[in-house]
Amino acid sequence: MKKLVVLSGAGMSQESGLRTFRDMGGLWEEYDVMDVATPEAWQRNPELVNRFYNDRRKQLLDCEPNLGHQLLAGLQEDFDVQIITQNVDDLHERAGSRKVIHLHGELKKVRSSIDPELIFDLDGWELKLGAKCPKGSQLRPHIVWFGEAVPAMDEAVEITSQADIFVVIGTSLNVYPAAGLVHYTPSNCPVFIIDPERPALKVKGVTFIEEKAGAGMQKLIDLLANL
């Protein structure tokens, strides 16, 4: 069974109703990234940071996996599908995808402020200030903030280097280190990029599918049938 590795970004979940960060009308137009997505912001104003992620969780509860998520999960019948996602939602898992690595953390989880290895599932959408881990530290969102290391990156590179097929869905390939994964694909590995706007990418052998996630996945399935 061929290994199909997928790198997904915000555009993957946009059709489910989740607001993206970078697009026009996105969250970064409403919030300064330095105020809600850095360790310094958490130290400076934990109330604002906590409210921002509580709002994101509350929105996620009203969202469902879209056609793109569902079609991707369906590919597991014919491929060994490994998803590497920049998204912090759980829509891949809810659609039925079994192998998912979250590069930037998970919205529905929280972790210790002093021990990043202590990670817990959050019951409901609200993390309250004052909620502490067993070691006595305040629980924080289980999110990789700007300026923090990406713990899952080494695993993602290893998986990408073993890909038979590599697919990028819904990401502009502007956020590093995740955007650099495409350069770790084997030399004979076909690369497909699904996005309404073609990213500026200098990689040979790329097939661009200029569609949103759902329509793009439908076209990808047709193309995979001919490989």
Score class of each variant (00 low, 15 high):
M1E: 04
M1N: 05
L7S: 06
S13Y: 11
E15C: 08
S16I: 07
S16N: 13
L18A: 06
R19P: 03
F21C: 09
F21V: 03
D23Y: 02
M24R: 11
W28M: 08
D35N: 15
A37D: 13
E40D: 13
W42G: 00
R44L: 09
R56A: 10
R57D: 08
P65M: 14
P65E: 13
L67M: 14
G68E: 09
Q70H: 09
D78E: 08
V81T: 07
I83P: 00
Q86T: 03
V88Y: 01
V88F: 05
D89E: 11
D89G: 12
L91P: 01
L91Y: 07
R94A: 03
A95T: 00
G96P: 05
S97D: 11
R98S: 14
K99P: 00
H102I: 10
E106H: 07
L107H: 08
K108F: 03
S112T: 12
D115I: 02
P116V: 08
E117R: 14
E117W: 04
I119D: 03
W125G: 05
L127G: 11
A131I: 01
G136H: 12
Q138G: 03
I143G: 01
A152L: 12
A152V: 01
M153S: 00
M153H: 13
D154Q: 15
A163L: 10
D164Q: 05
I165A: 04
V168S: 08
T171A: 12
V175T: 05
A179D: 07
H183T: 09
N188L: 09
F192M: 04
I193A: 02
P196T: 06
E197A: 14
E197R: 12
P199T: 07
L201A: 07
V206F: 07
A213V: 06
G214D: 08
A215P: 00
L220V: 12
L220K: 13
L220Y: 12
I221R: 15
L227V: 14
